[in-house]
């Protein structure tokens, strides 16, 4: 009976479809992270401002995105925006929007933290050897900030990949949804498919995320100040 179960993987194009679904997952995460890094750097610089209004708005934005479960945010965008503005957003687009908003908030906070933690004397030493403000920024500040950011950005990628599993719940055909479809289609032919499909998807996520986390850990160690 168990042999019958695992055979579902080799039927038709099932496994290929799973991999295609996995690719959609990874693609959404990568696009979102790229947007998050760009917008996050801008947001981070904005957040170092002393203006109380800016501080209040950015803080509220940060806290809201931090506290709300991602699924709630997905619902808000997917169902709420459709209702409010009449445009129908695809599940995939909703996911990219939500993840970018989430990622930008996190990256922004990291960038702000990194910028604020660079000791003042770094700016002062730069001035002491006669660099302009722009040069100080470009040669001294940015490289150090990047070192702190990259491992954390990579860590964000893994978290996004895991969170994309949620978009199956708003109908996007990514790896989990493909799995559900396969299980449904094989209901009569391979009744124990659920066990094997979900088991395989579990390991697919692991195979994708684990190397990335190892990379982040390695970089963090190698670049420790």
């Amino acid at each position: 009976m168990q042999d019958l179960g695992i055979s579902v993987l080799f039927q038709g194009k099932n496994f290929i479809r799973l991999l295609e679904g996995l690719w959609i997952t990874v693609r959404i995460s990568l696009i979102s992270v790229a947007i998050s890094i760009l917008l996050g750097i801008i947001l981070g610089m904005i957040m170092t401002s002393k203006n109380p209004i800016i501080k209040a708005i950015t803080k509220a934005y940060l806290e809201f995105v931090r506290i709300m479960p991602q699924l709630v945010l997905l619902f808000l965008v997917y169902f709420g925006v459709t209702k409010a503005f009449g445009i129908h957003l695809s599940g995939e687009l909703s996911a990219i929007i939500v993840f970018s908003v989430w990622g930008t908030a996190e990256m922004g906070d990291l960038v702000r933290g990194a910028l604020e933690s660079i000791p003042k004397h770094q700016y002062e030493s730069g001035k002491a050897i006669g660099l302009t403000k722009l040069q100080i920024f470009g040669y001294i500040i940015i490289p150090q900030t990047v070192r702190r950011l990259v491992p954390l950005a990579i860590n964000l990628v893994t978290r996004m990949i895991k969170t994309t599993s949620l978009i199956a719940l708003i109908g996007v055909v990514e790896v989990v949804k493909v799995g559900q479809q396969i299980i449904e289609a094989s209901r009569l032919s391979v009744p124990s498919a659920a066990l094997w499909i979900y088991g395989v998807i579990f390991f697919l996520y692991f195979i994708v995320c684990y190397p990335i986390s190892l990379l982040a850990a390695k970089l963090e160690k190698a670049w420790k100040d």
Binding site: T158, K162, T163, S165, L166, A168, L169, V176, G179, A194, L195, Y198, G199, I201, F202, Y205, F206, C209, Y210, S213
Partner: peptide, 12 residues
């Protein structure tokens, strides 16, 4: 457990 989503763990 850290490299797999809760959703999949639950489905399994």
């Amino acid at each position: 457990s850290r490299n797999t989503p809760l959703l999949i763990q639950l489905f399994f």
